[in-house]
Design a protein around this nucleic acid. Structure first.
Lengths: 116, 116
DNA sequence: CAGTATCCAAAGGGATACTG
DNA sequence: CAGTATCCCTTTGGATACTG
């Protein structure tokens, strides 16, 4: 695609790719999305346990960004103490194709690098 | 995919996605790949001009990583002074699908965020 | 031309402690 | 439980100058 386009569309496409990358960037974004996606609904401390090595500070920060990007929905449940539940939005689910592509490419890449 | 898998495959897939992201990460990787892809063959200083804001230090560093990952091929031409040409490898071209997906998702995302 | 080297400011992110 | 706040070290990356 990027190879066959005429120049005037080029910049818009580059911006679109970068937008996507920005949304997914950060060491933990995809892991968080995957965790929530896998369990459909997931609480803060559960995600913290799911992902090896993440700190509460980072999780908090990344969740906020994902929410701002409307990929996840945050729901406060009226329990004692408070419970917070995260789930993917419809828009969040549209990432599945990309994540699948990245998974497949990653596997192919590993073979390529390690010398098939 | 990540949503429907049983746990024992989960970690491998997560690793594969991260591998892909690592390869594409860095502020300039995709822009560099696109530049080379667009022109088929491209020289160092040409890429430097193509990409707005990149420094020679960064371009040098990113090109090295892309080469290590076998996405691009570096050829030194015996001219005076030296010319260096970069082109995508076959493996590099396999990124096209992903870049296209990221482009399309980025456009959809923009609409979603800006409120259609 | 195609890089390397150096300096330095800003951002990233871990560890730990604290709060409603 | 679900976060915030703080300290502080590490990494990132821009600007500039230099080299074969």
């Amino acid at each position: 695609m990027a190879c066959t386009n005429f120049e005037k569309e080029y910049k818009n496409e580059m911006r679109a790719v970068q937008d996507s990358m920005d949304v997914l960037n950060g060491k933990w974004k995809i892991a968080i999305i995957s965790s929530i996606c896998y369990y459909s609904k997931r609480r803060f401390s559960d995600i913290l346990d799911d992902i090896d090595g993440i700190s509460n500070k980072m999780l908090s920060k990344e969740l906020k960004e994902l929410e701002l990007n409307k990929l996840i929905k945050r729901t406060v449940l009226d329990t004692q103490p408070v419970t917070v539940q995260y789930e993917l939005t419809e828009h969040g689910y549209t990432l599945q194709t990309i994540i699948q592509n990245l998974t497949e490419w990653g596997i192919r890449h590993r073979k390529e690098i390690l010398g098939k």
